[in-house]
Design a protein around this nucleic acid. Structure first.
Length: 442
RNA sequence: CGGGGUGUAGCGCAGCCUGGUAGCGCAUCUGGUUUGGGACCAGAGGGUCGCAGGUUCAAAUCCUGCCACCCCGACCA
């Protein structure tokens, strides 16, 4: 693909409305365009990256056996009146009326709707557990949207819901998601800390927020650094292993400021292990028992007895993650975006030096591109007549992790291979594809 | 929702106080010279100055109203 033909409107200046680096980078590289306050269009580059994040989120849900479905964005107010949240949710809920003057709303979350779906079809305890998720747009009418996609009104979220017969089984489901989230964020090369959290309007008494560390985060966090040493790679999907895993995490102090208790912090964490910083919430899991199943009458038959199902819900902000990863990975000083290769917009960029009278490097670039494509490497050619410096800067900013530079005296065999932010090597095409593909597997 | 601020070319800004043919940098297009950490020269295109009303011979500029957006606070899976 030729860069000149792509819809990637790069800006040299930072738009003045953007105050944090993720917002700035997203506007500068043409990932998004604001449509109105807190509402954005996703342009091809941003959309491509978000879709890659979504894919990883989806795969990790599928791995723990959650079933994907899709619920609508527009919901009827009826079920929200049944749960009582039509009043409680307040101004943050966008309410609309259809032509019959029926009260509708743009869903801020889906507990009611999924519960209604569940109750109308599942009647026996033998069908439990049920784990369901969808990835869909949500709308919350924030008082003051800000920071680009980090705190916007319309956002893309994976939300999952679990239905179990009793607390013990529900806890098992909860822990599956606990593990799935650890795996998801690890694949995104983020160190996310699970933290005891407030449940807010979702309700319930058990909840963890998954927070990644970033200076621009909105949550203050207090943690024991040793929590980073907990490993989850070898954990099996059985009750006991998951229970142990959660225990291991919960051994270490890790809370957001709502739950912060200085005395406990001082007692439990030695000063060299204390971590006080800011973070971004990228995931949140809740266990709330029968808070929705009871008012909405979602029950199963258990040996002739009606049992209200025990529910949990599990969210990952997919669109927010795009911004959050930039906050964590963007090297502002050198203007290099370090996307992990699994979500980088392209794996490799070929940067040929070109001018009107000499297009020979473009021929070479095309040949190299064909070879890389045959090895499943997503490659882009910068076919513009910009100087090489300018091309490198551009692709550093876009966050393409590997660059092949075709300068004035390019060798036919040994190519100049730039591992962005690290080093430049002379390698042949098969060595190059091996390096890229090895990176992409891990 | 309270306080503050800003709307002028795709982006960044000047001009407004003191009314008189709408400007600069970047980006874009053309021609030429260049080419390894954001090159240079010459030329060109692009704006009903956020919207509406008012004052005036004349409004980007003064007055009134509205709208949008940004920042701080409160609020928030």
């Amino acid at each position: 693909m030729y860069f000149s033909k792509l819809f990637i409107p790069i800006l040299k200046n930072n738009p003045s409305e953007a105050k944090i680096k993720s917002h700035q980078l997203m506007l500068r590289t043409g990932m998004i365009k604001q449509s109105s306050a807190g509402i954005y269009s996703w342009l091809p580059l941003g959309f491509k990256i978000m879709k890659k994040i979504e894919k990883i989120v989806r795969e990790e849900q599928d791995k723990i056996g959650v079933q994907e479905m899709l619920m609508p964005t527009i919901q009827s107010s009826d079920i929200w009146k049944e749960s009582g949240r039509y009043e409680d949710y307040g101004e943050e809920m966008l309410r609309i009326k259809d032509r019959q003057n029926r009260e509708m709303l743009y869903g801020p979350t889906n507990e009611e709707l999924i519960t209604e779906i569940f109750r109308s079809s599942i009647k026996s305890y033998k069908s439990l557990p049920q784990l369901l998720y969808h990835i869909q747009w949500k709308f919350r009418d924030e008082l003051r949207p800000r920071f680009g996609v980090m705190r916007c009104r319309e956002f893309y979220m994976k939300d999952a819901y679990s239905f179990d017969l009793n607390d013990d089984e529900a806890n098992f489901s909860y822990n599956k998601f606990f593990l799935a989230y650890l795996r998801t964020f690890k694949r995104l090369k983020l160190s996310a800390i699970p933290m005891a959290a407030d449940t807010g309007p979702i309700g319930g008494n058990l909840s963890h927020e998954f927070i990644i560390i970033a200076e621009t985060g909105e949550s203050k966090i207090y943690a024991d650094k040793r929590i980073f040493n907990v490993k989850h790679d070898a954990v099996n999907l059985d009750k006991q292993s998951l229970h142990n895993l959660r225990n291991e995490y919960e051994n270490y102090y890790a809370v957001t400021d709502e739950k912060f208790n200085k005395k406990k912090f001082d007692e439990n964490v030695s000063s060299e292990n204390k971590l006080e910083t800011k973070g971004i919430e990228v995931g949140h899991i809740f266990y709330f028992g029968d808070k929705y199943s009871k008012p909405l009458q979602a029950s199963v038959d258990y040996n002739g007895k009606k049992e209200f199902v025990k529910m949990g819900s599990y969210g990952v902000g997919v669109s927010r993650l795009v911004g959050a990863i930039i906050e964590a990975k963007y090297d502002e000083k050198n203007e290099i975006m370090n996307w992990p290769i699994s979500i980088a917009p392209y794996h490799c960029a070929i940067l040929p030096l070109l001018n009107k009278n000499d297009k020979s490097n473009l021929v070479k670039a095309n040949k190299i591109c064909e070879i890389l494509k045959s090895k499943k490497i997503d490659t882009i050619i910068d076919d513009t007549e910009d100087g090489l410096t300018s091309k490198m800067k551009k692709f550093n900013l876009l966050g393409v992790p590997y660059q092949i530079i075709l300068g004035k005296n390019t060798d036919d065999k040994l190519l100049e291979f730039n591992i962005v932010g690290k080093e430049t090597k002379s390698l042949d095409i098969s060595q190059i594809s091996k390096i890229i593909n090895t990176d992409n597997i891990n």
